[in-house]
Structures are given as C-alpha cells and as structure tokens.
Design a protein around this nucleic acid. Structure first.
Length: 130
DNA sequence: GCATTGACGAAGG
DNA sequence: CCCTTCGCCAATG
C-alpha cells in the first residue's frame, strides 16, 4: 500500500472540472493559497500532502499553469527543498519573486531563503488534512 | 504512441 | 562537501 498512493489525484479524483484542468492542479493551487503569509514551503512537501510525494516535479508543473489561473496563487512562497527560488525565472520578472517575499518579511540571501527551516510550512503537519 | 522535458528530491561518487 | 546520476509522473512534441 506504500506505492498505491501515487495516483490519488487522478484515480480517486477524476477530472470533474473542465477539460484541461485536472483536479491535481486545483489541489496544488488550494494548498499553495493556504500557505500563511511570511511562510514558505517546498514542492516536495506539497507533493507529499497530495499523496504524490515522489513527484514533486508535478507540483512545479502545476504552478507553472497557476500563473494564468484567476485566483492569484502565491507561488513565491513555494521553493525547492534547498530553499532556493528556483521558479523565480518563471515569474513576470526574475526579481518579482524575491520582491514579493521581501514584502512578507521573507528575505533571500544568495538565492536562498534566510532561516528557511524556521519559515518552512509543512501542509501535512500544519494543515492536518484528513 | 514513443521520446523528451521539467519551478524536484534523494542517493551516490 | 560539491557535483553527477537516477527516479518519478504528467504534459508536450
């Protein structure tokens, strides 16, 4: 049963939404929007929360489309496990991500979030899903 | 329908 | 301790 949890977003939650919008995407958006201000998380943590911890890449993929989603998704609060702003280049401007984080008192030093472990927000722990 | 890619992550050298 | 390689899943060509 350890590897049976990788497709929950597709198997158990078929695309009830419009074509092109998988539930996996909506799930990612929802989690990211629940990230408290001034906190950050990693792709892996979100993936683990969704059940597909092995595929943190999919989270990033979903966030790539999140830029075009209507409710603005605070993708700047999502960094990789090292605390690096790997997705900053995908923003409107490469400095946009840092600027947004700085407004939230999250400072970036040498491409890495300061006190990343302190500001880290794990959805699986903090959010306490079912 | 197969091959490549991608905002990651863990392990190995 | 830094760099390279492999794995994973979904989307795209």
């Amino acid at each position: 049963m350890k590897k049976a949890n990788k497709k929950i977003s597709r198997e158990e939650k078929p695309r009830n939404l419009k074509s092109g919008e998988y539930n996996f995407y909506a799930d990612v958006y929802d989690v990211v929007r629940q990230i408290p201000k001034g906190r950050v998380t990693s792709y892996g943590a979100i993936a683990q929360y969704l059940g597909t911890k092995m595929s943190a890449r999919m989270v990033g993929w979903a966030l790539n489309s999140a830029q075009h989603v209507h409710p603005r998704v605070p993708a700047q609060r999502v960094v990789n496990r090292n605390g690096m702003l790997t997705g900053k280049m995908h923003f409107s401007t490469p400095t946009e991500m840092e600027a947004l984080l700085k407004k939230e008192k999250v400072f970036v030093k040498d491409e890495v979030v300061v006190d990343f472990e302190k500001k880290f927000w794990d959805p699986s722990k903090e959010l306490t899903l079912k």
